[in-house]
C-alpha cells in the first residue's frame, strides 16, 4: 500500500514537473494558480478533519498575500525569505484569531471566521493610504537565491515553487493525518464530548489544527500573490473563502489528493465556462456541485481512490 502510494506521488510530481515544460505558458500559469488554490483548499480540509467548516480562510490567504506585498515594498525580493515570512504572518494571525474562535463549533465557527475575514476586508479597503484600498498592491517579480528572473523564466520559477509548495503541503497534511493530533481531531469530529471525557485536550487539538490551517491558507495566499503579481482585498472577501470550501467538497475531503485535483478541475472548468458561457458558468458550477453531492458524496476523487484501494488490496 505504502509503496504504491509513494509511487503515485512520485508519478504525480513527475507529471507536474513535465507539465511546466510541455504545456503552453498560459496553462502553466493556470496550473500554478490551481495548485496555490489547492494548497489553500487543504487548509479547509484540515479543519474539516475536526468537523469544523471555516468560511473565513480568506483571512489568512489575504494576510499572507499582503504580507508579501508589504515585504516587497520594503525591498525584500527574495522568494526564500518572502514565503516563510508571509506564512509566518498568516500563522500569527491564526494564533490570535484561534484564541477567539477555537471555542466555537458548527455554524457559529463558520460565521465567526467569516466575520473576521470580512473585518480584514474592511480594513484593507479603508486603509487606503497604506494598502492601496480596492486597487491593491503590485507584487513585482521576486528573485530566487538572489537571481532576478524575468519573462518566461520568472513564470517557471513561480510554477515550480508552487509545485514544491504543494508537495510540502501534501506531505505535512499526510503527516498530520497520521499524527496523534490528527487522529484526535477526527475523534473530535465524531464525538467531541467523548474525547473530552477520555481526558484528551480538545481545545489544544482544535487550536493546533487551526494553526496548521492558517499556515496552509497563508502558503496558498503567498503563492497566489507571487503568481498573479497583484493582490487586492477581494482575497479576503467571503466569496473567496466560500470558493475554497466549494472546491474542497468538489474534490472530496477524504484524501490529500482530492482537494488538489478539485482545484485543478475547478480552474479548468471556470476558464472554459467563462469563455463559452459567460452568463451560465455559475449555473454550470452549481449544477455540477449538486450532482456531485447527491451522487458522488465523497467528491470527484473518491472513485479513483476506491479503484486504487481495490488494486492494492
Amino acid at each position: 500500500m505504502k509503496s504504491v502510494s509513494r509511487l503515485g506521488w512520485a508519478g504525480l510530481v513527475g507529471v507536474l514537473v513535465l507539465a511546466g515544460w510541455l504545456l503552453p505558458r498560459w496553462l502553466v500559469f493556470l496550473l500554478a494558480l490551481a495548485l496555490a488554490k489547492g494548497v489553500a483548499v487543504l487548509s479547509v480540509v484540515v479543519l474539516m478533519r475536526a468537523g469544523l467548516v471555516s468560511f473565513g480562510q480568506g483571512l489568512f490567504f489575504a494576510a499572507a498575500a499582503y504580507a508579501a506585498g508589504f515585504a516587497m515594498r520594503w525591498g525584500v525580493r527574495e522568494t526564500l525569505l518572502l514565503v516563510p515570512w508571509s506564512v509566518g504572518v498568516a500563522v500569527l494571525v491564526g494564533a490570535l484569531a484561534g484564541l477567539l474562535v477555537a471555542r466555537y463549533r458548527d455554524i457559529f465557527f463558520a460565521m465567526l471566521t467569516l466575520a473576521l475575514s470580512m473585518v480584514l476586508y474592511g480594513i484593507l479597503i479603508k486603509a487606503y493610504g497604506v494598502t492601496g484600498g480596492s486597487d491593491g498592491i503590485r507584487i513585482p517579480t521576486p528573485t530566487l537565491l538572489g537571481v532576478q528572473f524575468s519573462g518566461e523564466g520568472a513564470r517557471l520559477v513561480v510554477y515550480y515553487l508552487a509545485v514544491a509548495a504543494t508537495v510540502v503541503a501534501a506531505w505535512t497534511m499526510g503527516r498530520y493525518d497520521r499524527s496523534p493530533a490528527g487522529y484526535l481531531a477526527q475523534a473530535v469530529r465524531d464525538n467531541e464530548l467523548r474525547v473530552a471525557y477520555l481526558g484528551a485536550p480538545v481545545p489544544r487539538v482544535v487550536y493546533l489544527g487551526f494553526l496548521l490551517s492558517s499556515g496552509l491558507a497563508g502558503l496558498g495566499g503567498v503563492l497566489t500573490a507571487l503568481n498573479v503579481g497583484h493582490v487586492d482585498p477581494g482575497l479576503s472577501y467571503w466569496t473567496t473563502s466560500g470558493e475554497l470550501v466549494f472546491i474542497a467538497v468538489l474534490g472530496g475531503t477524504g484524501s490529500v489528493m482530492g482537494p488538489l485535483a478539485g482545484a485543478v478541475v475547478y480552474e479548468l472548468i471556470r476558464s472554459y465556462a467563462f469563455k463559452y458561457a459567460p452568463y451560465a458558468w455559475q449555473m454550470m458550477l452549481g449544477a455540477a456541485m449538486l450532482l456531485i453531492i447527491l451522487f458522488l458524496p465523497g467528491g470527484l476523487w473518491s472513485p479513483v481512490e476506491r479503484l486504487w484501494r481495490r488494486q492494492t488490496t
Binding site: 452568463y279 451560465a280 458558468w281 455559475q282 449555473m283 458550477l285 452549481g286 449544477a287 456541485m289 449538486l290 453531492i293
Partner: peptide, 8 residues
C-alpha cells in the same frame, strides 16, 4: 449550489 443556479 441552488443559489449559483438561481443567480444565472
Amino acid at each position: 449550489s441552488v443559489f449559483l443556479i438561481l443567480e444565472d
